[in-house]
Design a protein around this nucleic acid. Structure first.
Lengths: 163, 163
DNA sequence: GGCAGTTATTTCAAGTATAAAATATTCATG
DNA sequence: CATGAATATTTTATACTTGAAATAACTGCC
């Protein structure tokens, strides 16, 4: 049996390799490129911003609406931020706030019929765009990556609080 | 918010069109979680924003400085955006603009000695943070993912302009 | 030389983003 | 049932972000 043919410095005690950093930078660049592309298409074809679409997508999946805090956590943006996005969507009559009787601190936010109808349209296009943009990934490759990224966000969130 | 393990709805039975969308949403969430964590640590430990760090990182790698446009392309943010970030860094004496003699339209931006020294400090911490946050990925897994994400941003960018 | 077209940067308006403070409400507990 | 802690949202100040328009400077061509 032979050891590595490569001139590795020290296999056992590798210094904090830069590989994960390299991976992070690549993921970051790819994410930004995809977001830029989606943002541009949403703007040109549907006169809608990406955050607005994100909010509507979350609401479309929530049968009984969501509170501001739930939206904030789901989308991983600050709570103060959600206020402004919802304000504009309410202004455009795509979303409405309703006050639940049991807790007057909170609002439940949901899509209006107009909002739901418009979202259906946009969502179809959006899914196609993502399929095109990620066409590099074959089906089984996609499955494997889904597994590798699954729960990562939550682990980072929960692990990060103690450090 | 609860994160009950999903019942794994038999991947093969899902329409293939949705898989890439699912992958995209997971990548997006993970990226946002990592960015939030890095931003928080930069703020608390170094009183620095993430975009400012990104700019300094790009400059630290560029021996002879970069122009505004080069920075904008490298970081994939709009050109107008770079102006404000550089303004603040110049104000903090971490970066300086210098006018090249041959083209008076452009500036070359580079780190000051103070900026370079500070960046060294921050970069070490940043690398450790990323290593910790991406600790889920083993070395060979990391290598494979680097390969899969390599060039994706550029392909999206170049392919996206004509569509 | 003069002028059209391109390139580099800044400015602008609007929207997004954060953290922290302020408000309002609910809950637990004594 | 008072009151202090916790929760939900908005407000505020600052920073980031974009796309488009405005400036300024370079290039090529006649």
């Amino acid at each position: 049996m032979t050891f590595a043919a490569k001139p590795t410095p020290r296999p056992s005690s590798r210094p904090p390799g830069k590989q994960r950093l390299r991976l992070w930078l690549r993921i970051l660049r790819a994410t930004r490129a995809i977001e830029a592309e989606l943002r541009e298409r949403l703007r040109v074809q549907f006169q809608m911003t990406l955050p607005q679409f994100d909010v509507m997508a979350a609401l479309a999946r929530a049968e009984s609406g969501m509170t501001m805090t739930e939206l904030s956590r789901k989308l991983m943006v600050s709570n103060g931020n959600v206020t402004g996005i919802i304000d504009r969507l309410v202004n455009d009559k795509l979303v409405l706030r309703q006050a639940p009787a049991e807790d007057r601190r909170s609002f439940v936010v949901r899509l209006t019929p107009k909002g739901a109808a418009q979202f259906e349209l946009v969502a179809r296009a959006h899914e196609d765009w993502v399929n095109t943009l990620l066409a590099d990934f074959e089906l089984d490759e996609t499955e494997r990556l889904i597994g590798e990224f699954d729960g990562l966000a939550d682990r980072i969130r929960n692990g990060g609080t103690r450090a």
